[in-house]
Every structure is written in structure tokens, then in C-alpha cells.
Simulated scan of single mutants.
Amino acid sequence: MSMRGLVVALLCGLLGLGGGALVAYAVQPHTHDAGSPRPVGAVSPSVPIDVRRSPSHAPDITYPTLPPDLPLQTVHTIKNRLATWTYHVPEGWTPYAACPPAPATCKIPTDTVLKPGQVDRQRQLVFRPPGEPTLGGYLMRVAVLDNTLSNVGQMVATKIVGFEQQQAATREHFKVLKQTPYSVYFRYNALPSNRLRYNYFQWFAVPGQPNATLEMSVAGRQSDVPGLKALFNRFADNASGS
């Protein structure tokens, strides 16, 4: 072999070794430092994932939303042998009779429109805007209580327990949104309509007395929440008992 052929053969051998090394490096497993490790989602996980569905509700009734700036210019009185309360309601709202729970009886059936002379003689009543349906809209309820034992805080606790039992059938939708020493805010699905409802309660005691003798509540749709809160707070600012 000539000297030139020997040089060419040596060069080919060296190139072959280099190429083999490169191929061997390429097929080796590698690690890369790419910052913090991140989980990779499985394409077909062997463990099922529990995806919670959004609660389903029946649609709300079609009626204008409760505005948060209603004038509370109408004044009424509600009383029993324990206390007399004066309170304010939105101007122009219609008063309806509301029978207390059984076994109590009442002379005027629930949802009967009250005459002006009947309003201040009721122990419990409901106010709604004129023309609103009796179910599914917003309202304000006022009741005087024959309560000589429970203070305001006890009334809050009792209402929570009672509401939880009442809403057992729709427990997944029931929630206590807020609780204070004198009030509680609920969210739930009303049956049988299955509509989402917001219902806020508060209790009052005559100054100097421990027992709660006035209960007030508001109820409405999710769209009414700002107006419900405003009405709830302004009622408390104006209520006066003796």
C-alpha cells in the first residue's frame, strides 16, 4: 500500500470511531435541568377523578331586581304583651297576612292582602312590591315573638339548627353564608320549585331586656342580593322597641 493509501485508511478509521461515539451518546438517556419540576398530566389515568358538577337550579321568575336604594318611608307598628315595635317598610309595598306555624291559628289566611286597618293588628306579616308574584320574588317579613326565655344569640343558633333540618333534602345546596351575634344569612334551593334562594334573618330585643321579641327577614334571588342587604341593614337602623 502506498503512503497516500495508508493515510486515507487511518482517517476513515478515526471518522468511524467518532461517528460511533456520537450515535452511542444519542441513544443514552439524558437528564435536563429545566428549573422546578412540574407534574405531567396522565393521558388515561388509572384512578378516576371526581369532578363536582355545578348545582342545578330552576330559573328565577321574570321580575325586576330589588334596587338597593328604596325609600323606607312607610311606618308600621307591631306588638304583643311583651313589646311594641315600630319599623319602616319600602313605600308602596303591599302587606300580606302570614299565619304562624302550626299549631297556632290565624283569622286571615296566608297571602291575603291586608286592608290598611288590619296591618298593625297582625303578629306576623309579609311585604312585597305591588304586582309581584307571591312565589319566587323578593319580600320582607316581620314578626313579633312571644319569647320570654331566649336572647338574640340563642335565636340565631336555634334558627340555624332548624333551617339545616328543614333543608335536609337539598343539603348540597344549603349554606350558612354569614353569622353574627344577632343575624344569620342562608342560601338554599327552595322546594318544590328548586329555585336558588337567599334568606337573611335578624332579631331584636327591647333596650334593657335580654329576650328577643322582634324577628325580621328578607328573601329573594341572587340578583336581588345587593337590595336585600341594603333593606336588611336599613330596617335595623330604623326599628325601635319599647
Score class of each variant (00 low, 15 high):
Glu91Met: 10
Leu125Ile: 14
Tyr63Ala: 11
Phe186Lys: 14
Cys99His: 01
Asp69Phe: 03
Ala190Gln: 13
Thr62Met: 01
Arg81Trp: 00
Thr84Asn: 12
Lys79Pro: 08
Glu91Phe: 15
Leu72His: 13
Thr62Glu: 00
Pro116Arg: 13
Ala104Gly: 11
Pro90His: 04
Pro100Thr: 06
Val113Lys: 15
Pro68Asn: 03
Ala98Arg: 07
Gly162Asn: 12
Tyr185Ile: 12
Asp146Lys: 09
Pro64Phe: 01
Val152Gly: 09
Lys79Trp: 12
His76Gln: 04
Leu114Lys: 05
Pro64Cys: 01
Phe127Cys: 05
Gln118Met: 12
Pro109His: 13
Pro101Gly: 08
Leu196Tyr: 13
Ala169Arg: 06
Ala97Phe: 11
Ser150Thr: 02
Ile108Leu: 01
Ser183Met: 11
Val126Asn: 06
Thr148Ser: 13
Leu139Phe: 15
Met155Trp: 07
Leu72Cys: 08
Ala104Cys: 09
Ile78Gly: 06
Thr86His: 11
Val75His: 11
Tyr188Glu: 09
Pro109Tyr: 15
Cys99Ala: 04
Ile78Lys: 07
Thr86Leu: 03
Val75Met: 10
Pro133Arg: 09
Trp85Phe: 03
Leu139Trp: 14
Lys107Leu: 12
Asp146Ile: 09
Gly162Tyr: 04
Val156Lys: 10
Glu132Gln: 15
Val75Phe: 08
Leu149Gly: 02
Asn151Glu: 00
Leu114His: 06
Met140Val: 03
Pro95Tyr: 00
Tyr185Glu: 12
Val89His: 12
Arg141Ser: 04
Arg187Leu: 06
Thr65Phe: 00
Arg187Met: 08
Gln165Tyr: 10
Leu145Ile: 05
Ile61Gln: 02
Pro67Thr: 04
Ile78Asp: 06
Leu125Met: 15
Phe186Cys: 14
Pro95Ala: 02
Pro129His: 09
Gly137Asp: 05
Met155Asp: 10
Thr74Arg: 11
Leu66Phe: 05
Asp69Tyr: 04
Met155Val: 05
Ile108Val: 10
Tyr96Ile: 00
Gln154Trp: 08
Arg141Pro: 00
Thr65His: 03
Asn151Cys: 01
Leu70Phe: 10
Leu66Ile: 05
Gln118Arg: 11
Val184Tyr: 07
Lys107Met: 12
Val184Cys: 05
Asp111Val: 01
Thr77Cys: 07
Gln124Phe: 03
Leu135Pro: 03
Asp120Asn: 02
Glu172Cys: 03
Thr65Met: 03
Val184Pro: 09
Lys115Trp: 04
Leu149Tyr: 06
Asp111Gly: 01
Ala83Ile: 05
Gln165Ser: 15
Lys115Cys: 06
Arg141Cys: 01
Val119Ala: 04
Glu164Met: 15
Thr105Phe: 05
Tyr182Met: 12
Tyr87Pro: 03
Gly92Thr: 02
Lys79Val: 10
Leu139Arg: 13
Gln179Met: 15
Val152Met: 08
Pro103Lys: 07
Pro192Gln: 08
Ala169Thr: 04
Asn189Cys: 03
Gly136Pro: 06
Thr62Arg: 01
Asn189Ile: 02
Gln166Phe: 10
Tyr182Ala: 15
Met140His: 01
Lys178Gln: 13
Val152Thr: 14
Thr86Asp: 10
Phe127Ser: 06
Arg121Met: 07
Phe174Glu: 09
Gln165Arg: 14
